[in-house]
């Protein structure tokens, strides 16, 4: 009689563990709750869903005595989805292409200067003190959107998780500062505001720009895409040539 190998469903199902499903659900739930809280506080930047969501997860983690390492392993599928979602940035980039032409070389110059100054200042400051190299390198991607920052930091030898934290903090600080700074620089042009927010504060700044107005949001989206792509291309190249 020929022996038939049966499919071992038991072990296939075990690939997706209960804990994994549980923690992904908890993360989704925390995110949903964080959005609700954000709306409740009239989109106050201090209650940004990322911050509130992370605090909620932190609390649940502490209460249930789940080690951080375990949590990160459980929610790894969320990280996998980040790749395809980053690819989705191609669509706003394509839709704003007319705007890139319209803003022209001046707009590009603003983005490039902003995109260079922020990371160089940060890393310059860190060089004055005793920080390890991976920590220093993790601030270079501070002004670009997290998915690109994580990948780029990986390539240049930084710490991706730290870089992600730096990116989020930069985004929130940028939005907090923007009100005062726009007053200081007497910046009232929607294009200039959009460019500044998108270049420095990436996706978090763009969300704020959309609140200011449609035109500001469009320019911010454009700046976010251009700065993100340029930084993600230039940094690995620089490290390949001089690293």
């Amino acid at each position: 009689m020929t022996k038939v190998n049966t499919v071992d469903w038991q072990s296939i199902i075990q690939l997706v563990s209960i804990e994994q499903l549980l923690w992904i659900t908890i993360t989704l739930f925390a995110y949903g709750l964080a959005i609700w809280i954000y709306k409740y506080f009239a989109h106050n930047i201090l209650f940004h869903p990322i911050v509130v969501g992370a605090i909620l997860i932190g609390c649940i983690g502490v209460v249930s005595a789940t080690p951080l390492q375990d949590y990160l392993i459980f929610v790894r599928p969320i990280n996998w989805m980040l790749g395809p979602v980053t690819v989705a940035l191609a669509i706003p980039l394509y839709q704003q292409i007319r705007l890139i032409y319209a803003a022209g070389s001046k707009g590009l110059l603003v983005i490039i200067i902003g995109g260079c100054v922020a990371p160089l200042l940060a890393i310059g400051w860190l060089f004055l003190f005793d920080f390890s190299d991976p920590v220093k390198l993790s601030v270079l991607t501070k002004s670009i959107t997290t998915p690109l920052a994580v990948d780029t930091t990986n390539i240049i030898g930084g710490i991706p998780e730290l870089a992600a934290g730096v990116v989020v903090i930069t985004g929130i600080l940028g939005v907090m500062f923007s009100k005062i700074i726009f007053k200081l620089t007497r910046c009232d042009d929607s294009r200039a505001q959009g460019l500044a927010l998108g270049t420095v504060s990436h996706a978090i700044g763009t969300a704020r720009a959309h609140q200011i107005g449609a035109k500001t949001g469009a320019f911010s989206t454009m700046a976010l895409c251009v700065n993100g792509i340029l930084t993600a291309i230039v940094l690995p190249l620089v490290f390949m040539l001089f690293g």
Partner: peptide, 27 residues
């Protein structure tokens, strides 16, 4: 704190610079 300060002041200055430059170009 030194690390956070690096993020804070670089964000402030770069935002100041971009909005100032943008306003000069487009204002």
């Amino acid at each position: 704190w030194l690390f956070l300060f690096a993020i804070m002041f670089s964000t402030f200055i770069s935002l100041y610079l971009t909005s100032w430059l943008g306003q000069r170009f487009f204002g």
